[in-house]
């Protein structure tokens, strides 16, 4: 039954599903990185989400904020690489925006995504169109702000579609950051690996919320 608001335990369960989905998607994520980078993106995300899963499972979260920031901390310390810093920042900064919130609803989703993508942009310097995670994160955050008043299941469904749209659009782009930045025209046609991870995570959130 679709959930209109998540408790901190629900958030934990939702994030555990995201961990599982990333771990299972390792081959596709690495393959995407092989086309544009060094082929290890899936391995790094798998490492990070395995660590996150362990940390989440170790204790019940004190708060909604803590559930997200636990994932961020675990990714930040266990992964390294570009995506360790990026996703660590995303979950930590996104989590901070939820300080004090008892539940996770569409407004919280919007706050989380906006703070997350802002952190990523200021950490890595990338903007939409640079063929990075930002291409999926930013449209998702923009859409989340638009639907912040909707019910959570509708909101996350719209947000997931926006992220997917961003990923799709990233295929047409020339990379400006990360290892793919020297590929030039050769990058065109391939989706960005990091953006693909963003959609896997947001789709897992959607599946948990709308299930």
């Amino acid at each position: 039954m679709p959930k209109t608001s998540l408790s901190k335990e629900d958030v934990k369960a939702m994030l555990l599903l995201a961990c599982e989905r990333i771990i299972a998607a390792e081959p596709q994520l690495s393959e995407a990185d092989r086309n544009l980078g060094d082929g290890d993106h899936g391995l790094g995300m798998q490492r990070g989400m395995t660590a996150a899963k362990e940390k989440l499972n170790a204790a019940e979260p004190d708060s909604v904020e803590k559930a997200f920031s636990t994932v961020g901390m675990a990714m930040m310390s266990s992964m390294g690489g570009a995506s360790g810093a990026i996703f660590g920042t995303f979950f930590r900064n996104g989590g901070k925006a939820l300080a004090g919130k008892e539940t996770f609803d569409a407004a919280a989703l919007a706050a989380f995504l906006q703070a997350g993508v802002d952190g990523v942009k200021s950490r890595g310097g990338a903007a939409v169109g640079d063929k990075t995670v930002v291409d999926a994160m930013e449209p998702a955050a923009v859409k989340a702000a638009e639907v912040a008043g909707d019910a959570l299941p509708e909101a996350i469904t719209a947000v997931a579609a926006a992220a997917e749209g961003g990923l799709e659009a990233s295929k047409a782009l020339v990379a400006k950051f990360g290892r793919a930045k020297t590929l030039g025209e050769a990058a065109i046609g391939f989706p960005d690996a990091g953006a693909m991870s963003v959609t896997v995570i947001i789709n897992a959130m959607k599946d948990y919320i709308t299930a």
Binding site: G44, M79, G80, A85
Partner: peptide, 12 residues
């Protein structure tokens, strides 16, 4: 030192 082909984490 990071993992294979991956920068070290900030903790490291």
């Amino acid at each position: 030192i990071g993992d294979i082909f991956a920068a070290p984490s900030p903790d490291i």
